[in-house]
């Protein structure tokens, strides 16, 4: 399956209506109308630069000397230095940023696994099965999303402290295995509801039980939603610092998000250079994961799946 199948098919000769041409000249594949394509590219790139400016600014700053970051108006570093990266990576008291990356990696991996399985199970039930109290439970699920976490954090902390789980990864990861992220349940419910019923009925005739149906039919068909879940879980967990700050106070357990906060102290000194350097590094895994997985969202397997 080619990546951008839909649009290419849409761009048949039948799309030759004048109205459409003015509306969306990009669509035309024929070489003689190449010019508008460049225009589109130019537009996308121009807007893209606005999107990227912060990133570029941060990366540029990370190569500047600490005193230069705020003093010079220049975008590019005057004296290119790697000092910030070296200083930042060193971390604190013998614990390097490598350790923080590892910790974040472990937490993120566990969270992804938890969310993908636990949420998809719940979502399957909500989307495809009939059971008592379905509507009520679905409502409760949404309601759990509506309470600001600042008021639940204290009782939660008391609870985890009672269980002696402070300074472990459990408070950060276990909840995902118990599908506490209603966002993803709801997301998958919406996707699963869009899967044509006929497929399921066909499978049912084959004598497929609900468990096999979930595993062999619904899950593969929900890959775009699952990948979306993975990406979001990755990004949000990677960036979420408040709960990591509260539950991990031992520096050996610090994560990237918490580690980054060490460089800034609003009551005194801050190592901006090191902050930018490590922030830039911390974006790399996010970026890589995003680039790698996004094609699964976009390319999906929908067409193949539906036809199969």
């Amino acid at each position: 399956m080619e990546p951008n199948k839909i649009p290419e098919e849409e761009v048949g000769p039948s799309v030759a209506k004048p109205l459409l041409k003015t509306l969306d000249p990009v669509k035309n594949h024929k070489p003689r109308v190449k010019k508008p394509r460049y225009l589109t590219h130019a537009l996308i790139i121009a807007i893209g630069l606005i999107m990227l400016y912060p990133l570029l600014w941060m990366v540029m700053s990370s190569f500047k000397e600490n005193t230069e970051i705020f003093q010079s108006g220049s975008f590019f570093p005057k004296n290119f230095t790697l000092e910030n990266y070296i200083q930042g990576w060193t971390g604190v008291s013998g614990v390097t940023f490598g350790r923080f990356f590892l910790n974040s990696g472990i937490i993120v991996t566990l969270c992804i696994i938890g969310n993908v399985f636990a949420c998809s199970m719940a979502a399957y039930a909500f989307a495809r099965l009939d059971f008592a109290f379905k509507k009520v439970l679905f409502m409760i699920m949404l309601i759990t999303l509506m309470l600001p976490f600042h008021v639940t954090v204290i009782p939660q902390y008391i609870m985890f402290n009672y269980l002696d789980w402070i300074n472990t990864f459990i408070p950060l990861t276990l909840p995902k295995f118990l599908a506490t992220e209603g966002f993803f349940i709801f997301l998958m419910v919406q996707f699963m509801r869009s899967i044509p019923r006929e497929l399921e009925e066909a499978a049912q005739i084959d004598g497929c039980g609900k468990i096999r149906m979930y595993w062999q039919l619904i899950m593969p068909l929900s890959v775009p939603a699952l990948i979306t879940t993975m990406i979001f879980t990755f990004i949000w967990t990677w960036n979420d610092f408040f709960s990591q700050l509260l539950y991990l106070s031992n520096i050996k357990l610090y994560t990237v998000a918490v580690g980054l906060r060490m460089f800034v102290d609003s009551m005194g000194e801050s190592s901006w250079g090191a902050l930018f350097a490590m922030s830039a590094l911390s974006l790399i895994p996010l970026f890589v994961v995003f680039i790698f997985f996004q094609r699964y969202i976009i390319e999906g397997i929908t067409a193949g799946g539906v036809k199969g």
Partner: peptide, 21 residues
């Protein structure tokens, strides 16, 4: 979602702001 060349690249760029959190 259209058939432009370099789409993956563009999509990644447009997602960058959201990576910042």
């Amino acid at each position: 979602s259209k058939g432009l060349k370099g789409l993956r690249f563009y999509r990644a760029i447009y997602y960058v702001p959201s990576l910042f959190g």
